[in-house]
């Protein structure tokens, strides 16, 4: 019985270690300039996930901790950008761009995912705006007719009417005629 329990606790420890490593890597992608802050955040989310895991042990630790962290991230971004009416994907995209452009993870790493966010930081995030292209001023650009002149008429009378099968038959016919003629000339000369 002890062996089974040891095995289970070993598996659990490995699973939580993997969850912690994943969370740490995930937070690293936000390029916070303060490593201890990243570690603190990771531990905070891990503790919260452990608490929830005790309530529902069937859920896999990596899955649990990452879902919880991503959910928190979206909520935090929505709250600070005041964009709760948009979809998660839209909140995430405008929020992370705002983070990147405001350089908040580098200048104020301790405020990352912190609530409430100081007004000046919230303002700097809201001020960022990404313009990929100016407003359209639609123009109509269509080809004008061009008279291709005599070559088009010539092509229509000849090349455009050809088909490979007819050319092949004609070629075979004339080669045959040539050989018959050649054989006939050779025999009489």
């Amino acid at each position: 019985m002890n062996t089974v329990n040891d095995l289970r606790s070993d598996q659990e420890r490995i699973a939580w270690n993997q969850a912690y490593a994943r969370l740490q890597t995930f937070l690293d992608t936000f390029m916070l300039s303060d490593q201890p802050v990243t570690a603190q955040l990771a531990l905070r989310f891990l503790d919260q996930a452990r608490a929830r895991h005790r309530e529902n042990p069937s859920q896999e630790p990596t899955n649990l901790v990452m879902e919880q962290t991503q959910k928190h991230l979206i909520e935090w971004l929505a709250q600070n950008l005041d964009e709760s009416d948009k979809s998660s994907s839209q909140i995430f995209s405008s929020g992370c761009i705002a983070l990147f452009l405001s350089r908040m993870p580098q200048t104020a790493p301790a405020k990352f995912l912190a609530s409430p966010l100081p007004d000046n930081l919230r303002q700097s995030m809201r001020e960022t705006l990404l313009i990929t292209g100016p407003d359209f001023h639609i123009s109509s650009m269509t080809p004008r007719n061009i008279d291709y002149g005599p070559m088009l008429h010539l092509a229509r009378q000849t090349w455009h009417r050809w088909n490979s099968r007819e050319i092949f038959i004609a070629l075979c016919f004339w080669i045959a005629i040539y050989f018959i003629f050649y054989w006939w000339l050779s025999s009489i000369l």
Binding site: F30, S87, F92, G95, L99
Partner: peptide
């Protein structure tokens, strides 16, 4: 698909073009 900034930039481009 993995970096939040690269992803959000890409999503911004695609969101601006296509209705969700």
């Amino acid at each position: 698909l993995l970096n939040p900034y690269v992803l959000s930039l890409h999503l911004s481009m695609v969101h601006q073009r296509l209705a969700t």
